[in-house]
């Protein structure tokens, strides 16, 4: 029981959440109960209570906590510019301005082809040491801000930025790890199509997108076209789905 109390105490300590849950899982038989309680408490104290959802690309929306990108929240994306563009495409198409801070290699042509409106895209490729100030200034006026921290930010400045995001209702997407991110998006098992051993060219790619929720700590993944042959994003129909569709077709005939 003392362990359970301990963990609840930990819960209020913002930083230590995930490790606490991880140790509980292995050590304590009551872990499930505790985790459930933990999740309930967190959902009650979550920042997302009064936050509104941003229009999100449907392929990614299902994986994200809350079913969409949330205003005032931070997300982190690991090493994939395409995944970043997939996240930006939804809000940008719906009229949000997007700011990209500290990413000089952001592919503009790809962005416009993947559905990001270049008229509402602003780049600050080299913010230098002032990246946090620039990110905050851009977050003041734009719906979505993307940043890549050149170094670890101090906890106080991260908390200040988080408060600013909540106040302004902007969404932060960080390329790389971020201490207060709502969810972490990673990409694995990428299979390219259309290219062979010295033949063809890259046309489409299937990847597994994994979204790790900060609140529950549980990863959710899905197989996705990123992009498909028409340069769109979309979920890959699973084998079961295909069989269902086939059966429906047969019964219809």
């Amino acid at each position: 029981m003392s362990a359970a109390i301990d963990s609840i105490e930990h819960m209020f300590d913002y930083e230590g959440m995930t490790p606490a849950a991880a140790t509980l899982e292995t050590a304590n038989p009551a872990a499930d109960t505790v985790r459930e309680l933990q999740a309930r408490i967190r959902s009650m104290q979550a920042t997302t209570l009064d936050s509104r959802a941003l229009p999100t690309h449907p392929a990614l929306a299902a994986l994200l906590p809350g079913g969409a990108l949330q205003q005032g929240a931070a997300y982190s994306v690991e090493r994939s510019a395409t995944l970043l563009m997939a996240l930006l495409a939804g809000p940008s198409a719906a009229g949000s301005w997007c700011g990209i801070v500290g990413v000089p290699e952001f592919g503009i042509e790809a962005a416009s082809r993947f559905g990001i409106d270049l008229d509402r895209l602003v780049l600050v490729p080299h913010p230098g040491d002032q990246w946090l100030a620039v990110t905050a200034a851009i977050a003041d006026v734009m719906g979505v801000v993307v940043t890549r921290p050149p170094k670890r930010a101090s906890d106080s400045s991260v908390a200040r930025l988080a408060a600013r995001l909540r106040q302004r209702g902007s969404t932060l997407i960080v390329l790389g790890p971020w201490p207060q991110s709502e969810a972490m998006l990673t990409l694995s098992q990428s299979d390219w199509g259309g290219i062979g051993e010295g033949s063809g060219h890259l046309t489409e790619r299937q990847v597994t997108v994994t979204v790790t929720n900060r609140v529950t700590g549980r990863p959710r993944s899905a197989r996705m076209w990123l992009p498909d042959r028409q340069e769109h994003f979309g979920a890959v129909a699973s084998a079961v789905d295909e069989r269902m569709a086939e059966r429906q077709l047969r019964t219809a005939v």
Binding site: A81, T82, E105, G107, A110, A111, R113, L202, T203, E231
Partner: peptide
Amino acid sequence: LPPPAPATVFP
């Protein structure tokens, strides 16, 4: 280049 365009273009 044929589509898709690369998402990361090194400056």
